[in-house]
């Protein structure tokens, strides 16, 4: 996984970068399976390794296949990244041990969801219960985000292409 990340940074052939990021998503999916997050792994494999690779290839066909080398010095971004990363690592020092049953996150609402979820909804998959019932507002927000993204892409790309296609069809007929 680490190797793929360095390859993505190093390579300038964007075609290869897209392929490697697909491989990265697949590896991330296996990682999620290892930590028992099957639903997330499913999403990562379907979206990250599948559809987004195809969409990126589609985007590549509209632009060029090689990356332009930047002219700016990378020192300031490097400092920012190191500072942010350092702060995040410092934050993890305070976190409870992975899998600790006394961690705050396992004491708050999670036991209620796990115990009451199947009784209240009759749905055995707790992830689905939380996503679609207990946290239904959030999921509606997510669907709205996807809806907005789709509308935005259609507004930016599809309408112009549609007009051009219609014109071309008209010429073909004439």
């Amino acid at each position: 996984m680490v190797l793929t990340v360095f390859l993505i940074v190093k390579l300038h052939n964007l075609f290869a970068v897209v392929m490697i990021s697909g491989i990265y998503s697949l590896l991330a999916a296996t990682f999620f399976v290892v930590v028992d997050a099957v639903d997330v792994a499913f999403t990562e494999a379907a979206v990250g390794a599948g559809v987004s690779t195809v969409l990126m290839l589609g985007a590549l066909s509209l632009t060029t296949r090689t990356e332009k080398t930047g002219t700016r010095k990378p020192f300031v971004p490097l400092v920012v990244v190191l500072l942010t990363g350092g702060a995040l690592v410092y934050g993890t020092l305070d976190m409870p041990v992975y899998g600790d049953p006394n961690a705050p996150i396992h004491q708050h609402v999670a036991p209620v969801y796990l115990e009451e979820g199947i009784k209240e909804t009759g749905v055995p998959n707790v992830v689905t219960v939380v996503l679609a019932s207990y946290r239904s507002y959030d999921t509606m927000g997510e669907v709205t985000v996807i809806f907005t993204a789709g509308i935005a892409v259609m507004a930016l790309l599809a309408v112009g292409a549609g007009g051009r296609r219609r014109r071309k069809d008209g010429e073909d007929k004439a």
């Binding site: 679609a132 239904s136 789709g150 892409v153 259609m154 930016l156 790309l157 112009g160």
Partner: peptide
């Protein structure tokens, strides 16, 4: 309710993915 809501999610996600792909592919 969960069934109906999940169906709505699936419909929107599938349509948006197809729409984005059509938009990109129809362009070039």
């Amino acid at each position: 309710g969960i069934f109906a809501v999940e169906f709505g999610v699936g419909l929107t996600v599938a349509s948006v993915m197809v729409a984005i792909f059509f938009a990109f592919a129809g362009r070039g």
